[in-house]
Design a protein around this nucleic acid. Structure first.
Length: 352
DNA sequence: AAATCACTCAACCGCCCATAT
DNA sequence: AATATGGGCGGTTGAGTGATT
């Protein structure tokens, strides 16, 4: 049996919304909340499809959205999240407060994609179009790609949690229209902001952050720095992760598996945490450290004898193996940018 | 001034997924 | 377990508008 239409299409208005329609929709939602979108148009006196109402509300009328020109910071964030997540606009939007997925998608299609193309960068792969990788670079790129996939899965799962928490908060009254007790604005920025805060807080790309720490501090792969995982970022990360749905888990596990993480390894849904040799006596034993070698990062971070590349430890770059130069160096800069932007670090902070 | 082109973005469409029954 | 339903997402369209000829 085919899926029935979302509403009776006969007699319904389509096309641009009039100010009068906006006023009706806004007034209704402010008073009663949207409730069932399917039932809303009739109750609000609109000759529109419920879906159309939902779209108008979420993309235009909602009081907590910002319209207008995208800032440079926002554009960079979009580009770099797109590199991680692809066309997952809703996930990207969840990391850009006050912007809608539709707006971001439009901006990408009309501005950013063209700009990248003009710069000679493939907007799909985010790599230079004349990219010719040798075997070593391909291996490095593959590792970076796996990292991106892994982190992307996590960001997507986080975004899902953001959405779910929004739903719980923003639609608290399943009361019927007409109940004066429910007469309040659904989206109240001042009240929802703190609730949005926790999911937005762990914006850090944990894998990259971890990577950063090991570049900066570790002389050997198994000697991680406590600063790699500040207690805040670790805990912030673990909290929402532990609430991932089965689907999220499956997605992260898949990404983890692609990343080379054994199925029986992760202690925390796909993240390769280990409590044995990689734990640090930091005075805070609850801080678990990622096992990079298990996660496959060792191939990027360290040479065959588990020594950090000289470029990583700050030694003369002339000693860097050939495979570590060139494209992988570009990738490092690229990921540096992502990390800096998403973490809000001062630009230019060296990571690699 | 009129015609054409290029661009933007609000809105629609079809599909997928989660949930209720 | 199967089906119905609603909500959400990403791709696409087309009306509106400004620039160019």
């Amino acid at each position: 049996m085919g899926r029935p239409p979302c509403c009776e299409k006969v007699g319904l208005k389509k096309g641009p919304w009039t100010p009068e329609e906006d006023r009706k929709l806004l007034a209704y939602i402010e008073q009663y909340g949207h409730g069932s979108w399917r039932a809303l148009p009739a109750k609000a006196g609109l000759k529109r499809c419920g879906k159309s109402c939902r779209l108008r509300w979420t993309n235009y009328l909602r009081p907590d959205i910002r319209r207008g020109k995208f800032s440079l910071q926002e554009e960079q964030t979009i580009i770099q999240l797109h590199a991680l997540l692809g066309n997952r606009w809703s996930v990207i939007a969840s990391h850009l407060p006050k912007r809608t997925d539709n707006e971001i998608k439009n901006h990408w299609n009309t501005h950013l994609k063209k700009r990248l193309t003009k710069m000679g960068i493939d907007p799909v792969t985010h790599k230079p179009k004349t990219h010719a990788l040798g075997p070593d670079q391909l291996k490095d790129a593959a590792n970076l790609s796996h990292m991106a996939q892994w982190e992307g899965a996590r960001l997507e799962a986080e975004a899902r949690l953001v959405r779910e928490s929004k739903l719980q908060v923003l639609n608290p009254f399943k009361t019927q229209p007409g109940s004066s007790a429910s007469a309040q604005l659904v989206y109240e920025p001042t009240t929802i902001a703190p609730l949005l805060h926790p999911p937005l807080q762990p914006l850090c790309l944990d894998v990259l952050t971890a990577w950063q720490g090991s570049w900066l501090k570790a002389p050997k792969y198994n000697a991680y720095s406590a600063s790699t995982f500040s207690s805040a970022s670790s805990i912030d990360f673990l909290a929402p992760t532990s609430n991932f749905s089965k689907k999220d888990e499956a997605m992260i596990m898949k990404a983890g598996a692609d990343f080379g993480i054994p199925n029986n390894f992760p202690d925390v849904q796909g993240m390769a945490y280990s409590t044995d040799d990689d734990s640090l006596a930091t005075g805070n034993e609850s801080i678990l450290l990622p096992n990079f070698m298990e996660a496959g990062l060792g191939e990027i971070l360290f040479d065959d004898s588990n020594q950090l590349y000289p470029s990583i430890t700050g030694a003369n770059s002339g000693d860097v193996p050939a495979s570590c130069c060139g494209d992988i160096e570009e990738n490092k800069n690229y990921w540096n940018n992502i990390l800096n932007l998403v973490n809000g670090l001062p630009s230019g902070s060296p990571v690699f």
